[in-house]
């Protein structure tokens, strides 16, 4: 690796990342053993300072991806490399030292905070763990600085988590995660437990902090609007695989994959006059234990052809866009949105 390439080398790379869980199907002792493929072979890179949004419906493997990236669970296949080195998964000394550089923001801030410690102590805790060289006064000063940075008042330092509002709690979690200036922040649905008005405040705060400290982030959400505001790049997941990738504007305005098209059409629009055609997917999300053969989306896909049932489309990449759909890739070199039949497009849904 030449030195001039070192800076352009991605901060985080995932290659063929998979996590399978052995499960026993219902039926008591007679139940058949099966494999649940929570994440089934995904590849992505994350550059320094970049925010990659990960969207998809619940159960598609977003949170498992977060755990794999942070080394909380061991991958069944593939690997995650952080700054060129594999991420350890053993919770040992190396794993703990790496926490200085990668931190997480949780969906449930109250659950992630210790209800028996005042918030200032919790914000200072990463410093206590990783910077024993700092004096108590230095740590206190840094905690106060962090509290100011996330918009908490100094007089709230001695408060306990249950005395704060949901948005304030999430600010505490953010301050704690940023205490060590991590290079990578994994945000697992950071605003989905908050009120919509508070969501906007917390997202703005994250954007401000990112502009100031320049962390890279894996931003997981089921909310397209949230991802659009935060992310530089979006990856859409379906059943443990990435089906589409691109810039937020491209993915939201010109979705290629039929699943993304349905997802985008389901997002409520603020423009009352612009009634968009809504694609209503038929059928239930398939069981990840028995993922369909071929393209895993084909049972719900309004435009599936015979090929989709037998042959799994690879994720083809072209520049910043990537899509895993036979129909979107059909047009020779470039990508085109999978053509939707008019029957699948209902009017504005009730």
């Amino acid at each position: 690796m030449s030195p001039d390439l070192a800076s352009s080398e991605p901060l985080l790379t995932a290659r063929g990342l998979a996590r399978h869980y052995g499960v026993r199907l219902p039926g008591g002792l007679m139940g058949r053993r099966a494999t649940l493929k929570a994440v089934d072979g995904i590849d992505f890179d994350l550059a320094r300072g970049e925010i990659l949004g990960l969207v998809g419906e619940s159960g598609c493997g977003k949170s498992t991806t977060a755990k794999l990236v942070l080394g909380h669970v061991a991958p069944s296949a593939g690997e995650v490399r952080f700054d060129g080195a594999p991420v350890p998964v053993d919770h040992g000394g190396d794993w703990r030292r790496l926490r200085r550089r990668m931190q997480m923001i949780y969906q449930d801030p109250l659950g992630a905070l210790d209800r028996r410690l005042p918030i200032a102590a919790q914000i200072a805790e990463p410093l206590q763990i990783h910077r024993p060289d700092l004096s108590r006064a230095d740590r206190g000063a840094r905690a106060a600085e962090l509290m100011r940075a996330v918009g908490l008042r100094p007089d709230q330092a001695a408060r306990y988590p249950h005395e704060l509002s949901g948005g304030q709690r999430q600010r505490v979690v953010i301050a704690r995660a940023l205490a060590l200036d991590p290079e990578l922040l994994v945000c697992d649905e950071p605003v989905s437990a908050l009120d919509v008005s508070v969501q906007a405040q917390v997202l703005n705060l994250l954007e401000d902090l990112r502009a100031r400290t320049g962390f890279a982030a894996l931003f997981i959400s089921h909310d397209l609007k949230v991802v659009r505001q935060m992310a530089d790049r979006v990856a859409v997941m379906y059943l443990g695989r990435i089906v589409e990738e691109g810039s937020p504007e491209e993915v939201l305005h010109r979705p290629l994959h039929p699943y993304t098209q349905a997802l985008v059409s389901a997002a409520p629009s603020p423009h009352a006059g612009r009634r968009r055609a809504r694609i209503v997917l038929r059928g239930d999300p398939p069981n990840p234990v028995e993922a369909p053969a071929g393209c895993s989306f084909h049972p719900r896909c309004p435009v599936a052809v015979a090929r989709c049932r037998t042959e799994r489309p690879p994720l083809l990449r072209e520049g910043r866009r990537a899509v895993a759909c036979h129909l979107a890739q059909a047009a020779g070199g470039g990508f085109a949105p999978a053509p939707l039949p008019s029957a699948a497009v209902s009017g504005a849904a009730a």
Binding site: R96, A112, D114, R115
Partner: peptide
């Protein structure tokens, strides 16, 4: 959440058990 969050911060088992789980 609080115990796994403390572990995710990089806290040693001593700290997780002594400072977080025991008081709780």
């Amino acid at each position: 959440g609080y115990a796994s969050a403390a572990r995710d911060l990089g806290a040693s088992p001593w700290r997780v058990y002594g400072r977080h789980i025991l008081p709780n």
